[in-house]
Amino acid sequence: DHWEIRVGDITIHLKDVDEEIIRWVEEALRNGDDLEEIKRWVEEVLR
């Protein structure tokens, strides 16, 4: 699977990601969370 999350001008590409993570990231972006923080979290989860 390949996911693209778009929020404003930001697009995040994710592969082999659980839908729950996608929802979490979308929510975090909508809440204005720091992008670097989100990326770190996702990388942590995917490890």
Rank of each mutant, 00 (worst) to 15 (best):
I10W: 07
E36L: 12
V17W: 11
I10E: 05
I10S: 06
K15H: 14
G32K: 10
E4H: 07
D33P: 11
D9Q: 08
R23G: 04
V42K: 00
W3K: 06
K15S: 07
I38G: 00
H13A: 10
R6G: 07
K39D: 05
D9H: 08
W41Q: 09
A28G: 04
H2W: 15
D18T: 15
L35M: 08
G8Q: 05
I38Y: 01
D1I: 03
R23T: 05
R40D: 05
T11K: 08
E4K: 01
E37I: 11
E44H: 06
E44N: 08
V17R: 08
E26F: 04
V17E: 04
D34V: 13
K39L: 11
E43N: 02
L29N: 01
E36P: 01
E26V: 08
L35K: 05
I10K: 12
E26W: 02
R47E: 08
E19G: 13
E44L: 02
V17M: 14
D33H: 14
I22K: 13
I38F: 11
E27A: 15
T11E: 08
V25L: 14
L35C: 00
I12F: 04
R23V: 05
H13R: 13
L35P: 13
I10F: 13
E43M: 02
E27Y: 01
E37D: 14
K15A: 10
D18Y: 15
E27G: 06
W24L: 11
I10V: 11
G32F: 13
K15N: 09
E43L: 03
R23K: 09
V25C: 02
D18L: 15
D1H: 05
E37H: 15
I22W: 07
E19L: 11
E27R: 03
H2M: 09
V25W: 03
A28Y: 10
D33M: 15
D9P: 13
D34I: 15
V42F: 12
D16M: 10
R40K: 13
I22E: 02
I5Q: 02
D1W: 01
W3A: 08
I10L: 09
I38N: 00
I22Q: 07
L35S: 10
R40I: 06
H13M: 13
I22Y: 08
E36N: 08
L14S: 05
H13T: 13
I10P: 00
R6C: 05
I21A: 04
R47F: 00
D33E: 13
I38V: 09
V17C: 04
D34S: 10
E44K: 09
V7Q: 04
L35I: 14
G8T: 04
K15Y: 15
L46S: 04
I10M: 09
L29H: 01
V45P: 00
T11V: 10
W3S: 07
H2E: 07
I12N: 01
E19Q: 12
